[in-house]
Amino acid sequence: MEIEMKIGRASIRAALALVAGAFIGASAMAQAYPSKPVRIIASTPPGGTIDLVARLLAQHLPAALGQAVVVENKPGAAGNIAAEFVAKAPADGHTLLVTASSHATNISLYPRLAYHPVKDFAPVSQLTSNPFVIAVPASSPAHTLGEFLALARARKSDLSYGSAGSGQGNHLGMELLKTMAGFDAVHVPYNGTGPVTLALMAGQIDVAIQSPPGVLPQMKTGRLRILATTGRKRSPLIPEIPTVAEAGVPGYELLGWIALLAPAGTPKDVVDQLQREARKILGRAEVASQLHAVSSDVVASTPQEFSAFLDAEIATWAQVVKKSGARAE
């Protein structure tokens, strides 16, 4: 009997040791992030600002994570191809998405998305924000935004504006300006921002909202005129140019942004770790300098802040899309 009891106690101790060992092993595995190289999926081709931000993260993250970080560009469909890919990836933090403000507008522009911009993602951080500029040809009679708005109201719908395509930020931003400033203009979509700039310089369109890096060289050579910037504050690149709000349309603001997201279900500790490291990277002076050179400001929000911001962006642009009748091409 005594022998049986000893064997029984030994068996229990062995079983408990196995359970404890398994728990410790599972806990260690859960904490061992990352366990393989991390992929950052960029929603645009190489060379643009989104790609720049993704590669800045990939350059500095390995030192903190102890694993290689690679960037894969999956452009197309206003970011939908990259977003769908990441939405369907394992929720383990090894596949991440760097994308732009189209992530908030696509749900209103595309009737059938293969993913949901909120439900299928774990928000990590809004990384940057950037204002746009309102530009006119050098031959335009308008030298200020106030003069342009007076001209636009007088000409009624006999005015045109260009965009990089239906549903793009510069399209919806102009639709918002039309509503807030009380004028009309015909939308002329182009295939990208480059053709818009060329059409503007040639006087084929009357006005356009563009990213500063694409038009500042033309402003300096006198081929374009910038009337206003669309941020809450003046751009340090062109501090002499007023904001739209300063120039006569109070409350108007249009900012592009870039953000980092993971698949929904990614462990909170992994999301928090990624956010902390991204914030440290964006806080480096040399990184901030590279971003300022392309007119981008560092944001580095928390997951909670970015989640609230994304919800607000989706709601705001849903109203603009509905009123404008914009649809993805």
Results as ranks from 00 to 15, higher is better:
1 M>D: 14
3 I>M: 12
5 M>Q: 15
7 I>W: 06
8 G>L: 15
20 A>F: 08
22 A>H: 12
28 A>T: 07
29 M>G: 10
38 V>K: 01
39 R>L: 15
42 A>H: 01
42 A>G: 10
43 S>D: 07
49 T>Y: 04
49 T>H: 00
52 L>A: 03
53 V>M: 02
55 R>Q: 14
61 L>K: 04
62 P>S: 10
68 A>F: 06
69 V>D: 00
72 E>N: 11
73 N>E: 10
76 G>Q: 09
76 G>N: 09
76 G>E: 04
77 A>G: 02
80 N>L: 13
80 N>H: 12
80 N>C: 12
81 I>F: 08
85 F>W: 12
88 K>D: 12
89 A>Q: 07
91 A>K: 12
92 D>N: 14
92 D>W: 06
92 D>M: 11
93 G>D: 03
93 G>L: 04
95 T>G: 04
97 L>R: 00
101 S>T: 15
102 S>Q: 11
103 H>N: 09
110 Y>S: 05
112 R>D: 13
114 A>N: 13
115 Y>D: 05
117 P>C: 06
123 P>E: 00
125 S>D: 06
126 Q>R: 13
127 L>A: 03
131 P>M: 02
134 I>S: 05
143 H>F: 13
144 T>Y: 09
145 L>A: 01
146 G>S: 12
146 G>C: 08
147 E>N: 08
150 A>D: 11
151 L>S: 03
154 A>N: 11
159 L>Q: 00
159 L>A: 03
162 G>Q: 05
165 G>M: 07
165 G>T: 01
168 Q>M: 14
169 G>S: 13
171 H>Y: 03
175 E>Q: 13
175 E>K: 02
175 E>G: 05
181 A>E: 00
184 D>E: 13
187 H>Y: 07
195 P>D: 03
205 I>T: 10
206 D>L: 03
208 A>Y: 02
210 Q>R: 06
213 P>G: 09
214 G>H: 05
217 P>R: 08
221 T>I: 14
221 T>R: 13
224 L>E: 04
225 R>W: 05
225 R>D: 01
232 R>I: 11
233 K>M: 12
234 R>L: 03
234 R>E: 03
234 R>G: 03
241 I>L: 11
242 P>N: 08
243 T>A: 08
245 A>G: 09
249 V>L: 00
252 Y>L: 05
254 L>N: 10
267 P>K: 02
268 K>H: 14
268 K>D: 14
268 K>G: 08
270 V>H: 04
273 Q>W: 09
274 L>M: 10
274 L>K: 07
280 K>D: 11
286 E>G: 09
287 V>N: 01
293 A>C: 09
294 V>T: 12
294 V>F: 07
295 S>A: 15
305 E>W: 02
307 S>C: 04
312 A>Q: 15
313 E>R: 09
314 I>N: 06
315 A>S: 14
321 V>H: 00
326 A>R: 05
329 E>D: 15
